[in-house]
């Protein structure tokens, strides 16, 4: 089961194989939770959105084309749920917790040097606007190609590339300032 592709697993799950669902959950829950928690201060809400993503994937299983990759499909559902969450709350995505100098107790402890570097990068990520951060998260963390990212965010590939490029420039200039 662990060596099966996402598509094979999803097909098995739709056919009623519970173990296939557990394996898919194992593959994607951590990634989705990390992405959700970067934008939502309340971890409970972030975790609920992850659970909603899987619930929604279950409801939409008959829409999934098994000839296409599962990851962008699942990410699109997750990001749309996140957007709807912010619409419902009447808010914009929040900056990650580390911005205010506190440490997130839910993360795995690391040595100080690494933690400083991580905080700098998170500060850089937090400085980006939501659309730039979305693209970078999907590309770097979710491992999607730019055409796949374009599908998830509902924009053209060239627009996605421009957002990523501007985002990288912002992060880099912030890292440079920190380094001075």
């Amino acid at each position: 089961m662990k060596n099966a592709t996402d598509r094979v697993l999803f097909k098995a799950y739709v056919d009623g194989d519970a173990a296939a669902f557990e394996e898919l959950f194992r593959r994607y829950a951590s990634l989705l939770t990390a992405i959700m928690r970067r934008d939502l201060r309340r971890h409970q809400d972030a975790d609920e959105l992850v659970q909603d993503t899987f619930l929604h994937a279950h409801r939409a299983a008959n829409d999934f084309d098994t000839n296409r990759p599962l990851r962008p499909w699942l990410m699109t559902i997750a990001f749309n749920l996140k957007r709807e969450y912010f619409r419902r709350k009447g808010r914009r995505p929040e900056a990650p917790l580390q911005l205010d100098g506190r440490r997130d107790p839910a993360v795995i402890p690391r040595i100080d040097e690494q933690r400083d570097a991580i905080n700098q990068v998170q500060k850089g990520l937090a400085a980006l606007n939501a659309s730039q951060r979305e693209v970078i998260e999907l590309h770097w963390f979710a491992g999607l190609t730019f055409p796949e990212v374009a599908i998830v965010v509902g924009a053209s590939v060239s627009a996605v590339k421009v957002r990523a490029h501007r985002g990288y420039q912002t992060i880099r200039s912030l890292l440079r300032e920190e380094g001075r």
Partner: peptide, 11 residues
């Protein structure tokens, strides 16, 4: 930058 991004903590 790429390494740092990939090295961000997992919950």
């Amino acid at each position: 930058l790429g390494h740092a991004l990939n090295d961000l903590p997992q919950p």
